[in-house]
Design a protein around this nucleic acid. Structure first.
Lengths: 178, 178
DNA sequence: AAAAATATACCGTCCAGATGGTATAGTTAA
DNA sequence: TTAACTATACCATCTGGACGGTATATTTTT
């Protein structure tokens, strides 16, 4: 247990650095400092920077997958449960999204192959969503719009206001049930 | 003329490096090599790496703005012309999109403030789109879905197939005219 | 018009500092 | 005692960018 939790602590420290100071400041020393550990200790857990980023991506991919699957499995209505889960989780889980932001940025910068777990996630979700009993094009557009919100937030290029965000959220959910 | 075109050549070289080799390989030496210039010559045109990235962002922001404005101004129908222009340009201008990708990634990595011109772009577009004679929530969702496509492509996390992309495109444009 | 001065557009080298990673010695817990 | 974990010292490499030059075009002065 101690091993696992230490690792997770380190991953959180790494995420924090990426989101607050940018990818270029994701140095081993900075991560060690933020995690309250020595550089040697950090390298004991993650033998290279690439392994560290790989760990970030895998961790967040697993979390996200579980969260969406859990949400879908608790939905009383079968039709459209996956797209509803995707929309709900993505709109409302702000904290998890920030992890996603950091992981994506770090992986894209360090080595694009590290994004594979996320690609798998998306492939899974896309097929669940298309096989969800509602019009697949409409479902895809709903998913894309949801992605548009969090990806624009990731880059800080456009932050939708709270009221407008709410209206978009409601409209998208209505479309699922139409 | 020679000054301007040299600068643009350098910016293209920088974009190419970012898109092909990632942000960590955007070094002054690599850009100089790709642009067929010496490091000293590069630094003559862009006195620091930050200035180089700033140049990338400003260049692509201006190009994009002109392209969308041009498209909107040539639309015979007033109602919905901005959202139509946004959808058309974003779906169809693949080359310009790649520049956008590189510029965003570089700016986000080097210094978030460099993204300001892109933020302005989005603010302008958003207000044009909302003041375009069609339901603003619907228009916003159409824009978000469009963003979702190119931002997912930016990260290589999800590439929509051509036929599906076409169907999404058609559906979005129908919604504009409904 | 000739000479002098200045500006523009480059080039290649050098270096301090930062960084990823190794080696190694020490500590704690089972 | 052993395995899990931590801390420190160290090294080789890379990078931004400062710097000193060169060549050519343009302007100013005489």
């Amino acid at each position: 247990m101690s091993r696992t939790s230490r690792k997770v602590e380190i991953l959180h420290a790494a995420s924090k650095i990426v989101s607050q100071k940018g990818i270029f400041n994701l140095t081993l020393e900075a991560v060690a400092l933020e995690a309250g550990i020595s550089k040697g200790g950090l390298l004991y857990h993650f033998p290279s920077k690439e392994e560290l980023v790989k760990g970030m991506v895998e961790h967040l991919a697993n979390n996200y997958r579980e969260k969406i699957a859990g949400n879908a499995s608790m939905d009383p209505v079968e039709k459209g449960k996956w797209i509803r889960a995707y929309v709900d989780v993505t709109f409302n889980q702000v904290y998890a999204n920030k992890d996603m932001h950091s992981g994506l940025l770090a992986a894209k910068a360090v080595n694009s192959d590290l994004l594979d777990p996320i690609r798998e996630l998306y492939t899974e979700w896309q097929s669940s969503i298309e096989d969800d009993g509602i019009d697949p094009v409409k479902a895809t557009i709903i998913r894309l719009a949801t992605d548009g919100i969090w990806l624009a937030e990731l880059f800080d290029i456009y932050h939708i206001g709270d009221e407008k965000k709410d209206m978009v959220y409601k409209t998208l959910k209505e479309w699922v049930d139409e």
